[in-house]
Structures are given as C-alpha cells and as structure tokens.
C-alpha cells in the first residue's frame, strides 16, 4: 500500500509540512492529495528538492500528486 497524504483543503505551508513528515519514512513512492494550484506547485518543488519526480492527475479541481524516487 502506497503511503498517502491527504492535504486537501489545507493551504501552504501545511501540505508541504505534511509531505516533509511523510517523506521521513524514506519510501520510493508517495501519493499526496491537494486541492489548489499553489500547494501543487509547492509540493512538487519540495519533492524535487528531496530527489523525487512528481506526476500529477487532476479531477474536479483536486490534484493527485504521485512522487517517485
């Protein structure tokens, strides 16, 4: 089961803080859910700084970010 962080409805920096907390487990993959563009950009930028690539799918204004190392 891939670790999932539900940060929908939260605005930055909280989604990034939650991602940072989750990434401490050192898994190869994570799913992070956000619902605004700013969080999407910020989590993607943070993931890049931690060596993860991010793919994004959007549905009804909600974004599913898949982080892979």
């Amino acid at each position: 089961m891939m670790k999932t962080v539900d940060a929908r409805g939260l605005s930055c920096p909280e989604p990034v803080l939650m991602a940072r907390e989750a990434l401490k487990s050192g898994d190869k993959q994570y799913i992070i859910l956000v619902d605004n563009m700013t969080s999407r950009e910020n989590v993607t930028r943070f993931a890049r700084s931690q060596g993860y690539t991010t793919t994004v799918t959007e549905k009804d204004g909600e974004f599913t970010l898949t982080l892979r190392k």
Binding site: P13, T38, N42, R45, S49
Partner: peptide, 19 residues
C-alpha cells in the same frame, strides 16, 4: 507568482526555499 513577504521569509526558515 504567489508573491508573499511573510511566506518568503517563512519558506526560507522552513524549507530553505528561496522562491
């Protein structure tokens, strides 16, 4: 650009993010 003075300083301290 999401320009924000408070956010700017905050992101440096929290994430070393200088954007």
């Amino acid at each position: 650009t999401r320009l924000c003075m408070a956010g700017g300083l905050r992101d440096i301290v929290l994430f070393k993010d200088y954007k």
